[in-house]
Design a protein around this nucleic acid. Sequence first.
DNA 1: TTTAGTGCAAACGATTTGCAAAATA
DNA 2: TATTTTGCAAATCGTTTGCACTAAA
Lengths: 131, 131
Amino acid sequence: MAALKYSRQRECIKNYLAMTKEHPTADTVYLHVKEDFPNISLGTVYRNLNLLTDLGEAIKIPTPDGGDRFDGNTMPHNHFFCTNCRKVLDLDLDMKKIEQVNKAAAENFDGIIESSTTIFYGKCGDCIQKS
Amino acid sequence: MAALKYSRQRECIKNYLAMTKEHPTADTVYLHVKEDFPNISLGTVYRNLNLLTDLGEAIKIPTPDGGDRFDGNTMPHNHFFCTNCRKVLDLDLDMKKIEQVNKAAAENFDGIIESSTTIFYGKCGDCIQKS
DNA sequence: TTTAGTGCAAACGATTTGCAAAATA
DNA sequence: TATTTTGCAAATCGTTTGCACTAAA
C-alpha cells in the first residue's frame, strides 16, 4: 500500500547522497539540505532517509559511535571506519571474495543468508601521517 | 591507571555471558542478574559490560535494531542476524577466509586495517519453517 | 583508610511519532 | 478532492553520568 508521492525535500536528500562521498550522518544531511530548504525538519530528513534505505536507494551504515551513516552508493562495496578520526571511507575490494565468504558461511547454516556487511577498523592514511 | 577491584555483580554478569548462547542485550543481562542481585541497577550492568569489552573478555555486537548485543565468547567467530525474528546466532565459518578478505582489503588501502567485523543477514532456520 | 564499584535518578544523543497544515496526484 | 508529506514538538529508546554511599584492598 501507500502510493509514493514526489517531494522536493526527498529529491534534494537523494541528490546530496548521490554526489557526496563522505558517508554523512542524518544530521549532516539535515544541515546540508537546510541550505535549500531552510524550514526542513530533522524528522523529515530521518523519514526520507529511512524511506530511501527501504527502497534500496541508499544504505545505512551502523558505526561504533552509535549514530548511523548514510551512503547513496548502493553497489555492493565495503567500508572502513577510522577509529581515530571516526571517518567512514569506501574500500575497494574484489567483491568475488565477499561472495565466496557468503557462500562458505551458508554451508553449515540451516537458514538463508541474504547478505553480509563487513566493516574494517583501523587508522586511515591521514591519521597515520599526522602521528 | 585505575586498579581493578573485584565485584560480585561483575562476576555474575561475566558468568552469565559465559554460559548463555543467546547474545543478550544489556537489558536482558540486567533482568537475569537481577535474580541474584535484586537491587542492581541498569547503569551498573552497562558499566560492567563496557568494562568487560574493554578488557577483551566480552564482545559488543551492534545490530541494525539500534541496541547492542553482548557475547562472552571472545574467540574470533561470526554472527548472523535474522531480519525476521531479530535473533543473533553464531556462525561457524572458516576464519581463514575472513583473513584472506582482510588481506585483500589492505592491499589497495593507504591506512592500517586492524580488524574487521562481518555480520550476515537473512532468515534463520526457525523463521523459514514457520513460513 | 584509600580507592573502586554501586544504586539511583537525572541527563544524554540519536531517532521516532502524533498531529494539524501544506504539497502532490 | 483524496492522500501523502511536511514541520514542529513531544516522546521514546538505549546508554551514560554525577553523586553520595557501600564494598574491596
